[in-house]
């Protein structure tokens, strides 16, 4: 059947040449379309992340999620690895770029790929998806409610600067941004400013802010889940990747 895909744990060559764990799902037959790097959120390389990888493969795109916490706890459960990473200081932007770069290479090597690669991330991964777009040659960037892109964390969080404002001029890939109008991180004002910056620099983008939705409205296992926003958001993601990564041959919509 044309909709078959294989999925499971593999490895990619991440930052610094480190071989790190990854979860991949790949259509069995060549599709002539591109692939998607799924960037997991701070709670880790978890089941929700793997389900998203499988969703893209079910659409006909090869997809891979690098385990950003692999180095901190090889072989550990995802929640334990996330805790170990947190205790060790988190994922640096440098590491993120190196690990996503390895995932991009993995996808470009998939048989039958058209060579295009998109990124997607949720929450912390949303910021990191944009970050990847500023530093890596990707073709489509999806940012789902990434915070601290323009605004640094509040002073009481006692965090060093996290903004990637100065890097945005390097962002050339088209961007789809999906946000909750009731979210505070990023706030509607920050989303509007990012919208204006991308418009001013000529970066193709579409931003959607959903009324009645706050942060993490895609998360089906959290109280924040908002079905209308999530259903519309997934459709917009599908349309965006079809436009920029190609239509998988033999796969219906």
């Amino acid at each position: 059947m044309p909709d078959e895909f294989l999925c499971g744990t593999t490895t990619v060559v991440g930052n610094g040449g480190d071989v790190i764990e990854a979860y991949a799902a790949t259509p069995v037959a060549p599709t002539g379309a591109g692939g998607v790097v799924v960037i997991h959120h701070m709670p880790g390389f978890d089941e929700a992340t793997k389900e998203i990888v499988r969703r893209f493969a079910s659409w006909g795109y090869a997809a891979v999620a690098p385990n950003l916490h692999h180095r901190d706890a090889p072989g550990a459960a995802s929640d334990d690895a996330a805790a170990a990473n947190r205790a060790a200081g988190g994922v640096s932007d440098e590491q993120l770029l190196g690990d996503v770069s390895g995932a991009v290479d993995h996808l470009r090597a998939v048989s039958g790929s058209n060579g295009t690669v998109g990124t997607i991330g949720f929450c912390s991964g949303g910021r990191q998806s944009l970050l990847a777009g500023t530093g890596l040659p990707v073709d489509a960037v999806v940012d789902c409610y990434g915070a601290f892109v323009l605004a640094d964390p509040p002073a009481e969080m006692n965090r060093p600067s996290m903004t990637i404002r100065d890097r945005l001029s390097s962002l050339t890939a088209p961007v789809l941004g999906l946000f909750g109008a009731e979210d505070s991180y990023p706030s509607p004002a920050e989303v509007a400013e990012l919208d204006a910056i991308l418009t001013a620099q000529g970066t193709e983008h579409t931003f959607v802010s959903y009324d009645g939705a706050g942060h993490a409205f895609f998360a089906v296992d959290r109280p924040a889940y908002r079905v209308a926003a999530a259903v519309d958001g997934w459709q917009r993601i599908a349309d965006f990747y079809h436009e920029h990564l190609g239509q998988p041959q033999g796969w219906g919509r």
Partner: peptide
């Protein structure tokens, strides 16, 4: 959101 803040003891 992911808060990033971490206290250690």
């Amino acid at each position: 959101m992911c808060t990033y803040t971490t206290e250690r003891a």
